[in-house]
Design a protein around this nucleic acid. Structure first.
Lengths: 144, 144
DNA sequence: GTTCATGCAAAGCGTTTGCACGCAT
DNA sequence: ATGCGTGCAAACGCTTTGCATGAAC
């Protein structure tokens, strides 16, 4: 699915902000890359197409897009990663050994959230969780 | 409970490393502070007692203590925090609004871990989780 | 025409590194 | 006496900031 259909420009203008080539380009890159993207990778990819686009601008655009909730910002293993915000909540299973991140719908989390609210009076916000561990392949393979 | 009883010196020497005043001091500070401690807070507290102890040394000591698993390192909301490793696993419920972090034994997590292993072939490592959300008080109080 | 967004360069922050000295063993 | 651990200072990488220019509305 192309992100063009999601009408980011409209959503940005609707809130009184301006659509610019820079913002479009960052959105393009996040869409093309898919999944978690490092700020640095965004910068590299963006500059491959438009060399004079500044790093500071990319940071500002990412911050802006996060504020509008068009993009999510997550920390995984000390790395900050960005991703286009999806409609459905989803989560990531990140293998400590090979770095592979599987998606996971997290349906099993609802019980946990209910439990925390009932027993701990705590409203957990688990919209975009990254769970660390070891994937099946690495567990069988030992470490290379 | 004083951490002296836990014989950190013995555990360090047992593995062929040396006990030094610097390492002792960092352990003292982590014990006195209790709970999550920022690297910067460790440095400040340590230097209050021994002004010439270097920042770089504190970082090296913390890294060393983590490698020996005497100290845990966790990321919460973009902050890296250190804490004396406890025998029992425990977790933290961090309120996004007031920053308050409640402890939680995480017994309800075992079902989740079992589920992930069975359904996703993924061995989750949830030894020291920090769950973000909103605590009861902030939920009732609105935002001040 | 107004205002918001960008480019540039510089500084900021927390953290890491190289090297020589000093102390625990 | 040996070599691990420290102090110092400098550099590092990532990110943020101030200001003048330029583009979107």
């Amino acid at each position: 699915m192309s992100h063009v259909e999601r009408d980011f420009a409209g959503r940005i203008r609707q809130k009184g902000y301006r659509m610019t080539p820079q913002r479009q380009l960052v959105l393009d890159v996040l869409c093309a890359h898919g999944g978690h993207t490092l700020a640095n990778d965004v910068i590299t990819a963006v500059q491959a197409q438009s060399p004079y686009l500044n790093r500071a601008t990319v940071y500002r655009v990412l911050e802006f897009l996060c504020a509008l909730q068009l993009v999510t910002r997550t920390e995984i293993g000390g790395q900050v990663v960005y991703e286009l915000a999806e409609e459905e909540t989803h989560h990531h299973l990140v293998c400590r050994l090979c770095g592979y991140a599987a998606e996971w719908d997290g349906r099993a989390l609802t019980k946990l959230v209910d439990h925390l609210l009932a027993e701990q009076d705590f409203q957990a916000e688990l919209n975009h969780l990254a769970i660390s561990g070891v994937c099946g392949q690495c567990r069988l393979g030992g470490d290379p």
